[in-house]
């Protein structure tokens, strides 16, 4: 590989990280919040898809993409509330319920989304950080969506909040030990309800990014499982919101590897490069998981840990 080609690939990976990572970021942060309160929500894939559809539909109907964004957060929160409410009943498995919510969310989105596959909806604006450059590539790569920064800010705020605020500590107590929380007089179900609703609202915003920013179109294959991957990223990020940011960026960059290698003429074995994000996750998992510390950081009340 010549150095110019190497530069192009690195550049494409950076640009890819900025473009592709945002949905992973929002869903993994939302899931992180929910799991910190002691509950798993696999339904975030459904919130992502339904959010994408709602954002696109509302943006198209009202002509205002920001209204679409609000709608996405709203439908996400509704799905989250439904999940949390059903899981607060006794003997309801949050894993099984999450899968049901996921199917309900995607199914609803496909049902109502039919008439919106063809029309073009107004898109959310981006911030042109590349204004200083005369190169069209750099200008396009640095057209970053404000949602990306919102995601990073939410991540940092969550990491800080879990340590330093009353609310953050409350969520962690509820997630780590329901018995202690009960002894302290905390209302466990209410706190989990809030954490799940907000978590799903974040996933819905991730969906709005897919349909209103990048790739910026609604169709039924739009997510192709990104919500589920993001849920797995939370484990990979050890329930740390800051690591979630890193994991999402890494995944975005790895996803850009396949197309960009082909674009500089390295096209042998593209199936392998297209699988790069998954290979990368596996390798990092193997490297980082050691006996004894594998689930360090996992909230104690999670059904997979208990």
């Amino acid at each position: 590989m010549t150095s110019a080609a190497f530069g192009t690939v690195l550049f494409a990976m950076l640009a890819g990280a900025l473009r592709v990572s945002t949905p992973f970021l929002f869903v993994s942060l939302g899931e992180c919040l929910t799991e910190k309160s002691g509950r798993i929500n696999l339904g975030n894939e459904g919130a992502l898809v339904l959010g994408a559809m709602a954002a696109y539909a509302i943006s198209y109907e009202t002509g205002n993409p920001w209204a679409g964004l609000l709608a996405a957060a709203g439908v996400g929160a509704c799905l989250g509330l439904l999940h949390a409410a059903l899981c607060s009943l006794t003997k309801v498995s949050d894993i099984a319920m999450g899968i049901a919510i996921m199917l309900a969310g995607t199914g609803t989105a496909f049902f109502f989304g039919k008439p919106y596959i063809q029309p073009s909806a107004p898109q959310l604006p981006t911030i042109p950080f590349g204004f200083w450059s005369s190169s069209a590539q750099i200008r396009s790569a640095l057209d970053v969506s404000p949602l990306f920064f919102l995601g990073v800010i939410v991540g940092i705020a969550m990491a800080w909040g879990f340590r330093n605020t009353r609310l953050g500590l409350t969520i962690r107590i509820v997630g780590d030990s329901a018995d202690s929380a009960r002894a302290m007089g905390l209302r466990i179900n209410l706190i989990r309800l809030g954490a799940t609703a907000v978590g799903s609202a974040l996933a819905g915003i991730g969906g709005a990014f897919l349909s209103l920013v990048y790739p910026g179109s609604w169709n039924e294959q739009l997510s192709s499982g990104q919500g589920l991957i993001a849920v797995a990223l939370v484990v990979f990020a050890r329930w740390n919101p800051l690591y979630c940011i890193g994991a999402a960026l890494l995944f975005g960059a790895a996803g850009a590897l396949g197309p960009s290698l082909q674009s500089v003429g390295i096209s042998k074995g593209y199936y392998l490069f297209n699988a790069a994000p998954y290979v990368l996750t596996l390798v990092l998992m193997i490297l980082s998981v050691r006996p004894g510390r594998s689930l360090k950081g996992a909230p104690g009340e999670l059904s997979i840990v208990r």
């Binding site: 473009r19 396009s140 790739p215 169709n219 674009s263 593209y270």
Partner: peptide, 22 residues
């Protein structure tokens, strides 16, 4: 650029951007 399947919206957008960048 081969994306690997008939409908991969994110990969198609990435492929298009990569081609134009190149």
């Amino acid at each position: 650029i081969f994306t690997g399947d008939w409908s991969m919206p994110v990969k198609e957008a990435e492929a298009t951007n990569s081609l134009i960048d190149a």
